[in-house]
């Protein structure tokens, strides 16, 4: 089957520092794919390049078969790409509902309407409310993010991305900094996501990765060390050496 997201020999360097080297990567529709690697391997840089937040030094990025290497973020999002951030990147002073509604409004192309009150767009509010309810946040709609516990903020981070109804979802350590009980809850929610969404997840927690992902790519110093099924990755000697030996980072 064709890849929904693909990179061909993607490279990025900052001066003398190379953070991505000839990354060839394919994500198939509906796939559950994990990107792992030690700290500083270039995982978040890779996501930033996929999104268009960073411009690669060379190589190509294809989204749904089209070259988007030079396309701005907004265009990629319109073509079905969504992401979450490793470090919360929310509208901190706005209520939870607005955080999601802003994304829904962008997707439904009403963000430029200037006349009717935002609160009168019932379809936006209903969709956002339902989405938040599926993540167990129905009781926090009007709470500003700053007053929300951290674990729930991580869920809003995911909710915003889901508000875009992406075909491809890039999750940058969705459970970063969350105690394990709550991480478990986040994983359960991720497992319930619609199967047609292709998901690329960056994660340090190996239990979570091996339960969730069907394919795993191991990135070391900007290079793909190995790609395979969880079993293949778990068996690989090199992965043990460079990565599993220091997995207690995340």
């Amino acid at each position: 089957m064709d890849a929904v997201l693909e990179t061909r020999s993607l490279c990025k360097s900052f001066g003398a520092l190379t953070v991505a080297q000839n990354i060839d990567f394919r994500l198939r529709p509906g796939e559950r794919h994990a990107l792992i690697g030690p700290n500083g391997a270039g995982k978040t840089t890779f996501v930033n390049m996929l999104m268009g937040a960073l411009r690669p030094s060379s190589g190509r990025i294809l989204l749904g078969g089209d070259d988007v290497t030079r396309a701005p973020q907004a265009q990629r999002v319109k073509r079905g790409l969504g992401r979450t951030f490793q470090i919360n990147s929310l509208f901190r002073n706005l209520p939870v509902l607005d955080n999601v509604a802003l994304a829904v409004a962008e997707r439904r192309r009403i963000a430029l309407r200037m006349w009717r009150a935002a609160g009168s767009y019932k379809e936006i509010i209903e969709e956002s409310t339902q989405l938040l309810a599926t993540l167990g946040l129905a009781g926090d709609l009007t709470t500003p993010i700053v007053d929300l516990p951290y674990g729930k903020q991580r869920l809003v981070e995911i909710a915003i991305a889901l508000g875009l109804r992406p075909r491809v979802l890039l999750l940058d350590e969705p459970a970063a900094g969350v105690p394990s009980a709550e991480a478990e809850r986040i994983l359960q929610l991720l497992e319930k996501l619609p199967p047609e969404i292709a998901i690329l997840i960056i994660e340090h927690d190996m239990d979570l990765v091996f339960r969730f992902a069907r394919r795993i790519t191991v990135l070391v110093q900007g290079e793909v060390l190995l790609e395979g099924t969880p079993q293949e990755v778990a068996r690989d000697r090199r992965v043990h050496d460079v990565y599993l030996g220091e997995q207690h980072h995340g």
């Binding site: 951030f85 509208f91 609160g119």
Partner: peptide, 24 residues
């Protein structure tokens, strides 16, 4: 009070996120 106004507030609050939800 319109969606446009809400969107502007979004830009002020967090430009990075506005990019990520597809706002030019």
């Amino acid at each position: 009070y319109s969606p446009f106004g809400a969107m502007l507030t979004g830009i002020r609050e967090n430009t990075q996120r506005m990019h990520a939800i597809g706002a030019p």
